Computed example of a mutant assay.
Amino acid sequence: MSNLRAAVIGVGYLGRFHAQKYAALEGVDLVGVVDVDLARAQEVAQEVGCTAYTDYRPLLDKVDLVSIVVPTQYHYQVARACLEADIHILLEKPVTQTVAEAEDLIRLAAERNRVFQVGHLERFNPAVVALAGVLKNPMFIESHRMAPYKPRGTDVNVVLDLMIHDIDIILTLAKSDLKLVNSVGVPVISDEVDIANARLQFESGCVANVTASRVSVDAMRKVRIFQPDAYITIDYQARKIGIFRKGGEGMPLPMIPNVTLEERRFEQGDSLMDEIKSFVRSIREGLPPVVSGEDGKRALAVALEINAKLAPQGPM
């Protein structure tokens, strides 16, 4: 089977990592990297052994697949051009600026029979993957995603920058239509909201409380899930999950009668490489992507509803 030809459009902080993964991936030839900053494109191209471009259009007839890692405002324009050229796309989150743009890309990908995957990286975290078979009818979900301030990513607010990761995971866990959204946000350093909290109520009765901050001193990425037969904790950074059950087979807890704890820990993985391998596998085997354009659209729609209902408290 011949190698697939790949390119990365946008090789800033995250795009550079995409380029490194393709360059290391068997069965894929990294043809080029694109960035409007010529010096940056040349630097990354030299590092991974391919050609540097400042315009993606000359590459459209030279590649089979691309990662699109440009600022969100350009997602739709670049993704549409690639799909029209019959190129499979891995488009970073948030998928587009509007739901209508996402819907158009979904339609076009289906018409062209192209794989359209969205870069919700947390789906490939081993702690999330390990929840398969454990999750049953969650009734309350609480997530905290805290990060130190970084100037990159501030073209969007914290909901579209960070919280959208947890929105996607929560929608996957809840498996129910959204009924009600309430939210509050505060701009701290940037002109956009830097700290936000949202309460999501689903038709199933499940409630999710979601907090995200990009102006924290310490990083934190944790989720707690309550369901009728268990309480589950996820620590993305520590790569572990804890499952508390009544009368389970785990370690007994002396302080709580008849409740046991099962802990699962995971080795340091490479979620980005897993994401890209999954994208390539979908192309080769004709499989639907793990995170589809529809998934990206659904997460975006909820994020935009949260933004629309933000009750700003004013700068601190």
Results as ranks from 00 to 15, higher is better:
221 R>F: 10
286 G>F: 03
86 D>V: 03
126 P>I: 07
3 N>R: 04
65 L>E: 08
112 R>D: 08
107 R>G: 07
152 R>S: 15
61 D>W: 01
19 A>M: 05
154 T>P: 02
146 M>V: 03
264 R>A: 05
37 D>P: 15
193 V>H: 02
140 F>L: 10
236 Y>A: 09
106 I>F: 02
202 F>A: 01
198 A>C: 04
141 I>K: 07
237 Q>V: 01
54 T>Y: 12
264 R>E: 07
74 Y>K: 09
281 R>G: 03
122 E>I: 15
272 L>C: 05
295 D>H: 15
262 E>V: 00
192 E>M: 00
61 D>R: 05
168 D>Q: 15
168 D>N: 14
268 Q>L: 10
298 R>T: 13
26 E>F: 03
108 L>K: 07
44 V>D: 06
31 V>S: 09
73 Q>W: 03
276 I>G: 10
236 Y>G: 03
186 V>W: 08
35 D>R: 03
72 T>C: 09
114 R>Y: 09
137 N>C: 04
12 G>E: 05
273 M>R: 12
163 M>D: 09
299 A>K: 05
249 E>A: 10
42 Q>A: 09
274 D>S: 02
180 L>P: 02
21 K>S: 12
142 E>W: 04
65 L>K: 09
84 E>M: 03
222 K>H: 06
139 M>I: 11
121 L>W: 13
273 M>D: 12
157 N>D: 11
177 D>A: 08
236 Y>D: 11
129 V>N: 11
248 G>Y: 06
305 E>Q: 04
230 A>P: 10
193 V>F: 05
179 K>H: 06
280 V>F: 03
27 G>P: 00
205 G>M: 05
225 I>V: 13
247 G>T: 08
27 G>K: 01
309 K>M: 03
312 P>C: 06
137 N>L: 04
304 L>Y: 03
183 S>M: 00
41 A>M: 13
316 M>G: 06
167 I>N: 00
216 S>C: 11
45 A>P: 07
131 L>K: 12
20 Q>L: 08
77 Q>K: 14
220 M>E: 12
242 G>F: 13
312 P>E: 07
9 I>A: 04
268 Q>A: 05
271 S>F: 02
61 D>K: 07
241 I>K: 04
129 V>K: 06
54 T>K: 13
215 V>A: 11
275 E>M: 09
